[in-house]
């Protein structure tokens, strides 16, 4: 039975995740190095290390999970014990509620909700007394003076949040081992986690609003960013995961 199992809900680039996991197993310690992508409840239930990835729409992801009760039961069972790494939707799905599609129910294992960047950016803009984001962004006509001004203007923030952003350590965790505080990871998402319990936040980032970049509770660790696409820092995090016992 493979040690590392990647749950296949048919979204995202699972190949990248499995390749990166296999790459960090090359060193050989901890696991037997076998990685598989599976939607088979028996395989998922028996996984030594479970990775829950996902990209795109959370609604479709949850629907696919719910459409297969045996799979859902296996995933939920496995989330209760043994090391789990959630990636992107695999983070968002752990919370109870999402703004997507007017209030989608998640798995409810962590405390908080999933929100859209656009709403957060609008709230910031309204603080300037300028309801119209566009009007605001036009005011920086003197662009010779600066990248900084318009980069800092929330009205100009593009969605999705795409690219390399800094992750601030909120608390220590075995998965951060050997990664510097403030290291950059690759993100691509339009919804973000607004955590309800501070002690479940492992790392955070800023994009017009401060959001949860990594969450941790007991055997669960989940990232909004993509470790499989985050070069050295990401590979280090995956390496730490496959060598983690979930405690």
């Amino acid at each position: 039975m493979p040690g590392i199992v990647i749950v296949d809900l048919g979204t995202g680039n699972l190949r990248s995740v499995s390749r990166a996991a296999a790459h960090v197993c090359g060193g050989g310690d901890g696991d037997n190095g076998a990685v598989c992508v599976s939607a088979e409840p028996r395989v998922i239930a028996a996984a030594a290390h479970l990775i829950l990835p996902g990209q795109g729409a959370l609604g479709a992801w949850i629907e696919r999970l719910n459409a297969n009760p045996d799979l859902r039961a296996a995933v939920l069972g496995r989330l209760r014990a043994g090391p789990v790494l959630g990636i992107c939707l695999g983070l968002q799905a752990l919370y109870a509620r999402s703004e997507e599609n007017g209030g989608l129910p998640g798995l409810g294992l962590l405390d908080g909700s999933v929100k859209h960047f656009a709403a957060a950016h609008r709230r910031r803009c309204n603080g300037d007394g300028d309801g119209d984001g566009d009007g605001n962004s036009n005011s920086d006509g003197d662009n010779a003076a600066a990248g900084k001004t318009h980069a800092a203007n929330p009205a100009r923030l593009k969605i999705p949040h795409m690219g390399w952003n800094r992750v601030r350590r909120v608390r220590e965790h075995p998965l951060w081992h050997g990664i510097e505080d403030g290291a950059r990871f690759y993100f691509v998402h339009s919804y973000y986690v607004d955590a309800g319990a501070r002690d479940e936040v492992a790392g955070e980032s800023d994009y017009g609003v401060t959001f949860t970049a990594a969450a941790a509770r007991a055997n669960l660790f989940a990232t909004q960013f993509h470790p499989e696409k985050s070069q050295q820092s990401g590979l280090r995090l995956l390496h730490n995961f496959v060598n983690w016992n979930g405690e």
């Binding site: 980069a151 800092a152 949040h161 690219g163 390399w164 952003n165 800094r166 950059r184 980032s205 994009y207």
Partner: peptide, 8 residues
């Protein structure tokens, strides 16, 4: 603003 501009 901490999101990096990308070079591709």
């Amino acid at each position: 603003m901490t999101l990096a501009k990308r070079i591709i």
